[in-house]
Computed example of a mutant assay.
Amino acid sequence: MKFIVLTSLALGLSSADVVTVVPGGSLIPHECILEVSNKDVVSNDKMLAMLPEHCTDSAKDLQFGTQQIYAQDAHLQNTAGLWTNFTGDWIVPPLPSSHDGQVDYHWTGFKSSQPEMGYPVLQPVLQYGQTMQAKWQLQSWYVWGNGGKAVTGPAVDINEGDKLTTYMSFDDDSQTWTVYGKNEASGEESILTITKDALGCDCDFEWAMIVHETIGKKTGYCDDYPADSSGITYTNTRLDGEAVDWTTRVQKTECGEAVNVEDDKVEFTWKN
């Protein structure tokens, strides 16, 4: 298993409360994160066998001026039914110029219930700082923050300028979700395949999201962003094969954060 370990001092927790930061889910105990290989199919039996019973506890919140938030996002609800396929490609930006313990996530995802923290989400994630190292990784996740559990595919190291291709899809015959991410430069993949009953939440994923999620300081954080004000442009952003009219949202504004949409392109920008 690979994960970020934040010190109990930084989070205001006792030494017994060692926890892990996950995308969209705040803090989850180490033993409640299951990492599988690209070839595994995560079934309900496997989840029950490998995750402790206490993993149904809610995730903890961060403390001492640290904030986990969807700094920028685009989202859309399928009011007529459920999304079953979502594609998205993007180029890996430069590393942040500052490395002070922040975590920086960029992802496409299917979210259950609401486009907010804590609800179940399937997501291929470009992540910085997830292993307390100043590098990019690609990793496919299923996270249920309020349910206190997460399942991942393998973490793949990524370099600036690499192209990522991703998708999430549901196979109705097998009742199985696939979360897929590939580094086109190296050919390495992070694949998570999980049956619907293994989600543990009777989830319907009616929300699609594209997100820049940050964990770090509430103010004075601009140098913690990728050191490129051109930001990230997601291309081939198609839901069930179609370009859509996204609703955009910006929740942090100190660095000139903005989201722009044009056809199947979604652009996230900021100023360092």
Rank of each mutant, 00 (worst) to 15 (best):
L76K: 04
T152G: 01
T195R: 04
S169Y: 11
K46Y: 13
T233C: 12
E184G: 05
D57P: 00
L239E: 06
Q114Y: 14
A74Q: 02
W83A: 05
K2D: 15
V250G: 01
G200P: 09
S230P: 01
I69M: 04
T214I: 14
E188R: 08
D263A: 15
K2P: 11
G256I: 12
L138H: 04
V151T: 11
Y167G: 05
S26K: 11
V179S: 05
T253K: 13
Y225L: 13
N236E: 13
Q175P: 02
F110H: 04
Q251H: 11
G129Y: 04
K46V: 14
H30D: 08
V266P: 01
S190E: 00
Q77W: 07
V266R: 00
V19F: 07
Q139H: 11
F170R: 05
Q67I: 15
W207F: 14
S112F: 02
N44S: 13
T7E: 10
W90A: 05
D263T: 10
G153N: 02
S43P: 10
D223Q: 15
L27A: 10
D104P: 00
A258M: 07
W246R: 01
C255S: 05
P93Y: 09
E267W: 06
G187D: 13
Q127M: 13
W90V: 05
D224M: 12
W207S: 03
T195W: 10
T237G: 00
A150W: 01
C203Y: 02
M132E: 12
D264G: 06
C201P: 11
I194P: 00
T152H: 03
P96Q: 07
N159F: 04
G161D: 11
T235N: 14
V36C: 03
T152V: 09
V125T: 12
T178M: 14
G101F: 03
G101S: 04
W90R: 04
T269N: 05
G153F: 00
K217F: 06
G109F: 01
Q114A: 15
E242Q: 15
A134P: 03
A243R: 09
